[in-house]
Every structure is written in structure tokens, then in C-alpha cells.
Design a protein around this nucleic acid. Structure first.
Length: 739
DNA sequence: AGGTGGTTGATTTTT
DNA sequence: TCAACCACCT
């Protein structure tokens, strides 16, 4: 038969597109299973991102859907960005504009702007950051007579956030949910808080999803849901194990249309339960989406089998897993080093030594990480690394947009764009100082409350009367005039220029220029950076949206450094060598986690251990200290149960003298206290000089050549002294006399 | 309007 | 221990 005589116009046996090459079977299956619900259980390092991006490219390439018909959801902007780049690259640089590819929050915000009126907002609503949330709730508490001293607003907002995470509106929350909180009124505060948000035309992060759920499940707005059903033919979700109930509901509503939903995740890496994530979502997938296909990716391309087996042994102690076991073609590799040390300082010293050794072996510091359970642990390592001159970087410090000057500047822009933004207006009404004190602001708020209007309109009203002192009145009138003028320029002036103009004319720039503190130049620098970064965005509102949802730490790289970060921060990353310090009961697993959440808490801690171990490509180091200084006092600890859960055959145990051995209860407890006293003496930093004088830190002393000074540190007979006139010197104790 | 002393409380934090 | 926050003072 001739080839041409047969039916189709399909090209003869065209071999498959390049992007499908070099995939393993389950990966390929995941990519080609396009219809119906699919759950891809993607273990650590199994090529999850590749599957996700290739699947998306495949949908487009095969003509199953246009870019605008696919909803692709991630948790972080970083992940969204990476996905965009990789899909675009797979398709030969296809532009990504108009794609529904982004984070839960940015996609929900995009939807909500289209339907804001349905929940009583206008589409230029402000997205509040956590700080504003707290301030707003605090105001609500004060008005309702709930003492913010007794009930910390931050804790109260955390509870409200959890309700929102669960998709609960104020109507769905009752007194029984509030319990004792806020004098048993938290549910009422929640309702009032929502009312205030609406009044200032604002949303918090949780609202973005909550409002969308409210709209989508309201039969009166079936047309909206129908529109999205028609639009989204395929839905893809990354990190499904970290979704909360609200996100789940949102997805389920949207997926009712096509049923084509593909979720990728790993139940063993669910570590955000405390933020409202529900492992249950991924565990329940098959019942939620009947007929779902489940695909397991178990071939790992990252780690040695030693690491994978050890991680598996640990995680196997958890119940209620979907179950999978990773393997790798990389061979066995080195054993995991487990080491017990005297205290936190010794631990940091040891880690430092090992890192120097890795360095000598030619390993790049960029491939080394220290992963801690809690932020405060980074300090010891920082101190040690500074001493050793090992370059390091603590990942996950304060963010750019959390800085005071950035938040102030943004507040100005927010008021320009959205006059009803009370929080922003309050923030800058007296910054720079204009003589508008607390009393004035309270008067304005009181007026606003009794007339049911916002701060901006209250100012407009009251400046027409003689309620306010003449000076205050003229100042406020001037400020309102300024804002009106700036607002009128929104459409005509380029937004970076307008932004610069606002900061200049408001006197905000001047304020920092006159500031003599050492931080001031840096702040001016940040403001400049803020403005120069703005021209990438279409408009001032677009920029503000970006800042609220997206703006990340720009990690100014350059050079090699050891990464120091929390285990949470390390998710999704990989390093050749990973140090896991502080594996002690109480610290890791965290006592608080276990106290508050029992077995569930412990299991999440264990997943954290799993995440930590699986970050390592070649070598993992686990360590624990017998003594640790916590909140000022010394605490002695026993090794973490997770240490015991590491299989002996994959571990190489080495310990300081007297601390060796594998059992954690036997000798460890007894040896804890006695030698500690000795150590304590060293820490007292006292020294007996040959002449019989005792020196201590803080002593005032006299030196023949350098004069008077204060002892800042003692090492043996060497004293570090801060001299009044000669600065810091290190001298021998025999040359100084006690004053 | 800035400084200060005293109290408090202290994991993890993708948006 | 220590830093952040606040009430109070100058």
C-alpha cells in the first residue's frame, strides 16, 4: 500500500517533539495524561518542575488549549516565574502575556478585580500587608472595647487568617469558634474587621480567595462561574500538598467545568500546616475527584541512595501517607555523618571546620547549606563564620518592601491611587512631621465613625469647619490639595516621574536628606531603587499590585557563599553538602509544635526532617548539642528522636569524648549537668593573673602604654580591652592592673 | 518629638 | 539573653 492512499492529513510518522525525549515512564505518563483528574505524586528531586512545564507545553503544542484556556497555579512567584520561562523556552520563546499562570493570590486578585462589585468593593481595592492587617484589627478592637494588651492583635489576626484559610466568612463563624478569644468576641471582631476592610476598599491576602469563593459559589452569580468554566479547559496546580481549604474550594469550583485538573505534590513535604495548609487535600484527592489517575514519580535525580534511604526510614514513621519510595541511579554515596557535641558553640565550630575541609577539597561554597529549624539558630553560625572568614549569607531576612521607607513611599502612592485607604493615609499624614498629632487623628477618626465615612473624607469635611486648630487645618488642606493635584496627574504623567514628584513635593525625600542617622543614605538609595524599578510596570496601580503580591528579596549574589537558612526556606532547593544542626528533642522536633498539635505536629516536624535530608545531593551532616543556651539560660537536651530514626547502616557516628554512642537516653542525661559547671566557669571569662589578680569581663583596668579601658573578652591570659583613647587592643594580663 | 526604662515574650511565614 | 514595644517623661 502506498502511504498516501490512506486517509489522513497527519504527517507520516513524524517523530515526536523534542521536549518528550529523555523522560522516564511515569514522567511521560504524567505529561500525556491530559484528560480528567490527575494527581502526580512527585517525590523530592524527581523532576516535578520538568513534568509541569512539559505538560503545559504539550497542551499548547498539541492544540488542546490556547494559553488563555489554561489555569496554572503555583504558591510562590519564584515558581511561577520559573514556569513561565521554561514553558516559553520549550515553545521557542513564545510570549507569556495573558496566560493565567501565577500564584493562587495573584490569580485570585486578577479575578476579583473583575468582579469586585459583587462583594462590595471597587476594582481598585488595596491589598493590605500583614502589618496593616494588624493595625486595622487593633483599631477595631479599640472601638469594640476589647483590650489589645490582653489579646494580642497579632494572635487574633492569626486566628482570623486561619478562618479565612478554611474558607469561612464571618457568617460561618460563631461564638463557639471564638471560644475564649478576645473575651469570646473574636467572631464579632472578625465581622467588624471585614466591614472596615470594605469601608476602606481593601482586601487582605486571605480575602482574595475568600471573596472569589463567595462569588463563585453564589447561585445568583452562576454566570461568573459559568464564564470561568468555559474559559479554563485545563487546570494545573503545583505544590498541592500545601493548599489550604480556601484554595482547594476555589480549585474545585473552577474544575467542575472541565474536570481536567492535574495536581502535583508530595504529601511527605507538607510543612505549612501551621499556616492553614491541609495535607488532607492531597490525601483525599481520589475521593474529591472520582476516577482520578494517580501517578508516582519515584526516580530521584538529585541524591545518593544513602540519603534517600535514610530520609525514607525517617518519614516511614509517619502514618497516613500515600506512600512512595525514592530511588536513584547515583549509587550509594557517602554515609551521613552524625555528630554529638558539647554545646551550640562547639557545634558551630565543628560545622565551620567541616566546611573549611570541603572548601579545601575544592567544593564550591554555593553548594553548601546550613539548614536550621528556627531563625535564632543562625546567629551562632554567623559568629563562627565571621571569625573564620567563611563567606555566608543568611537567606530570608527582612524583605525590601518591609522596610520603613519603602512602606512610607508606598503609602503615599496608595493614597494617590485610592483615597479611601485610611491605613495608608494615617501612616503618612504626619510623616514627615507636619504637626498632626495623635489627638488630631483620633478626632478625625471619631468624626468619620459617627458619619460613616473614611479618613480622607473626614479631613475634607472638617477642614471646612473650625473644629480643628487653624494651623492643623491649613496643613491638612495643603496635604489634601497636594493629593488632589497628584491624583490629577495620574493619567498624564509617567508614573515613575509622578512617584518621584510625590516623594519630593511631600517633603518625604527632604526628611531623609536631613536625617543624620547612619541608615539615612541607605534609605534614600532604596527609595531611588524603588522608583527606578517602577518603569517595568504599566501604571502606578499595576505597580502597587505587584508590590503587594510579588516583590521579592532581590538576592544580590556575587561571589561564593554558604547558605544559612531555615528548613522551611530550603524547600525546593538543593545543595551538594547539607548541614542539619540542632537535632535535639524540644528544638527539633519543636516542643511547641508537639504541645500545640500533638501527633499531627510531630509528623509535620518529621516531614521537615525529610525535606532537610532530601536537599542534599551528596553528603548530609546531622548534629546535636548536649547543652544549648536558650533565652539566656542553659538547657540540656537529648538527641532528637529523628537521629534514632536514621538507619545505622547509613550513618557514621562520631562524637566528642564522653559523648559518643548511639543511644540517646543512657549516658547522655547523667553527663549533662556536672561538666556544665566547668564550662560555665570558662564562660564567666575570668582569669587569674600571675600576680594573683582576678580579671573579669567588664572590669576597668589600667595599662602603662594604652591608659584606661574596659575588658571586653578574655582568652586565657590574653585580654581584649576597649581603651578609652587607644581603641581595641589585645594585651597580656600581666601588663595591666585592675583599677 | 524624642528619649528611656521597664515589661514581655521568644518557631516555622510561599502570599 | 535580648530586642522590641510602649507608657511615660522631658
Amino acid at each position: 500500500m502506498e502511504l498516501s492512499s490512506t486517509t489522513s492529513l497527519t504527517p507520516p510518522q513524524s517523530h515526536e517533539p523534542a521536549y518528550l525525549e529523555n523522560l522516564n515512564d511515569p514522567q511521560r505518563e504524567a505529561i500525556e495524561a491530559l484528560d480528567g483528574p490527575v494527581l502526580v505524586l512527585a517525590g523530592a528531586g524527581t523532576g516535578k518542575t520538568r513534568v509541569l512545564t512539559t505538560r503545559l507545553a504539550h497542551l499548547l503544542q498539541t492544540g488542546r488549549a490556547y494559553p488563555s484556556q489554561i489555569l496554572a497555579v503555583t504558591f510562590t512567584n519564584k515558581a511561577a516565574q520559573e514556569m513561565k520561562e521554561r514553558v516559553s523556552a520549550l515553545l521557542g520563546g513564545m510570549p507569556v502575556e495573558g496566560w493565567w499562570l501565577g500564584t493562587f493570590h495573584s490569580l485570585a486578585a486578577r479575578m476579583l478585580r473583575r468582579h469586585a462589585d459583587l462583594v462590595g468593593l471597587s476594582s481598585n481595592f488595596t491589598i493590605l500587608d500583614p502589618d496593616d492587617q494588624i493595625r486595622l484589627l487593633k483599631q477595631v478592637m479599640e472601638v469594640s472595647g476589647v483590650d489589645p494588651k490582653k489579646w494580642v492583635p497579632k494572635a487574633m489576626i492569626a486566628m482570623i487568617d486561619r478562618w479565612k484559610d478554611r474558607g469561612l466568612t464571618p457568617e460561618q463563624v460563631g461564638a463557639e469558634d471564638a471560644g475564649e478569644l478576645a473575651d469570646g468576641k473574636l467572631h464579632l471582631l472578625y465581622a467588624q474587621y471585614q466591614q472596615r476592610l470594605r469601608a476602606i476598599n481593601a482586601c487582605d491576602f486571605g480575602d482574595l480567595l475568600l471573596h472569589m469563593i463567595t462569588i463563585l459559589r453564589n447561585p445568583a452569580h452562576a454566570d461568573v462561574l459559568g464564564e470561568y468554566h468555559r474559559r479554563f479547559r485545563y487546570i494545573m496546580v503545583d505544590e498541592y500538598q500545601d493548599t489550604n481549604v480556601a484554595q482547594y474550594l476555589w480549585l474545585r469550583l473552577l474544575a467542575q467545568g472541565s474536570q481536567n485538573i492535574c495536581c502535583v505534590g508530595d504529601d511527605d513535604q507538607s510543612i505549612y500546616g501551621w499556616r492553614g495548609a491541609e495535607v488532607g487535600n492531597i490525601l483525599r484527592f481520589e475521593t474529591d475527584f472520582p476516577g482520578a489517575k494517580i501517578i508516582r514519580l519515584e526516580q530521584n535525580y538529585r541524591s545518593t541512595n544513602t540519603i534517600l534511604k535514610a530520609a525514607h526510614a525517617v518519614i516511614s514513621n509517619n502514618e497516613g501517607r500515600l506512600g512512595k519510595e525514592l530511588w536513584s541511579a547515583a549509587g550509594e554515596g557517602e554515609k551521613i555523618t552524625v555528630r554529638g557535641l558539647w554545646d551550640g558553640e562547639a557545634e558551630a565550630r565543628w560545622v565551620g571546620e567541616e566546611i573549611e575541609q570541603l572548601q579545601r577539597k575544592g567544593r564550591s561554597l554555593n553548594q553548601v547549606a546550613v539548614l536550621v529549624r528556627a531563625g535564632f539558630q543562625t546567629r551562632e553560625f554567623e559568629e563562627r563564620f565571621i571569625q573564620l572568614g567563611v563567606p555566608y549569607k543568611v537567606i530570608g531576612g527582612p524583605r525590601f518592601y518591609e522596610r520603613m521607607e519603602i512602606r512610607d513611599a508606598l503609602a503615599y502612592f496608595r493614597v494617590v491611587v485610592q483615597p479611601a485607604d485610611d491605613l495608608a493615609l494615617e501612616r503618612i499624614v504626619n510623616t514627615p512631621k507636619r504637626g498632626i498629632g495623635d489627638a488630631t487623628v483620633q478626632t478625625l477618626y471619631a468624626y468619620g465613625r459617627s458619619h460613616g465615612i473614611n479618613l480622607h473624607d473626614s479631613i475634607l469635611d472638617l477642614t471646612q469647619t473650625d473644629e480643628l486648630r487653624p494651623k492643623v487645618k491649613t496643613t491638612l488642606m495643603k496635604l489634601m490639595d497636594d493629593f488632589m493635584r497628584w491624583r490629577s496627574l495620574l493619567d498624564t504623567m509617567k508614573h515613575p516621574e509622578l512617584a518621584a514628584l510625590v516623594l519630593e513635593e511631600s517633603g518625604y525625600m527632604q526628611m531623609w536628606k536631613e536625617d543624620k542617622t547612619p541608615e539615612a543614605p541607605g534609605r534614600l538609595e532604596n527609595l531611588k531603587e524603588l522608583i527606578s524599578g517602577m518603569d517595568q510596570y504599566e501604571s502606578l496601580p499595576a505597580f502597587l499590585e505587584h508590590v503587594a503580591l510579588v516583590l521579592e528579596n532581590q538576592d544580590a549574589s556575587g561571589g561564593e557563599y554558604v547558605s544559612v537558612m531555615t528548613l522551611h526556606g530550603a524547600k525546593g532547593l538543593e545543595f551538594e553538602a547539607v548541614f542539619l544542626p540542632g537535632w535535639e528533642e524540644g528544638l527539633f522536633p519543636s516542643q511547641r509544635s508537639m504541645d500545640e498539635n500533638g501527633l499531627k505536629g510531630l509528623e509535620e516536624e518529621r516531614r521537615l526532617a525529610y525535606v532537610g535530608l532530601t536537599r542534599a545531593k551528596e553528603k548530609a551532616y546531622v548534629s546535636y548539642a548536649a547543652n544549648r543556651r536558650m533565652y539566656g539560660s542553659w538547657v540540656n537536651a537529648i538527641p532528637s528522636r529523628f537521629v534514632d530514626e536514621l538507619p545505622k547502616e547509613h550513618v557514621e557516628l562520631s562524637s566528642d569524648i564522653g559523648l559518643a554512642g548511639s543511644g540517646r537516653s543512657s549516658h547522655w542525661d547523667s553527663s549533662g549537668l556536672a561538666p556544665k559547671v566547668q564550662k560555665r566557669q570558662i564562660h564567666e571569662r575570668k582569669v587569674l593573673s600571675e600576680s594573683g589578680v582576678i580579671f573579669s569581663r567588664g572590669d576597668r583596668v589600667f595599662h602603662d602604654k594604652f591608659g584606661y579601658g574596659i575588658i571586653t573578652n578574655i582568652e586565657g591570659h590574653k585580654l581584649d580591652i576597649n581603651f578609652d583613647h587607644s581603641g581595641h587592643k589585645r594585651v597580656m594580663d600581666s601588663f595591666v592592673e585592675k583599677n
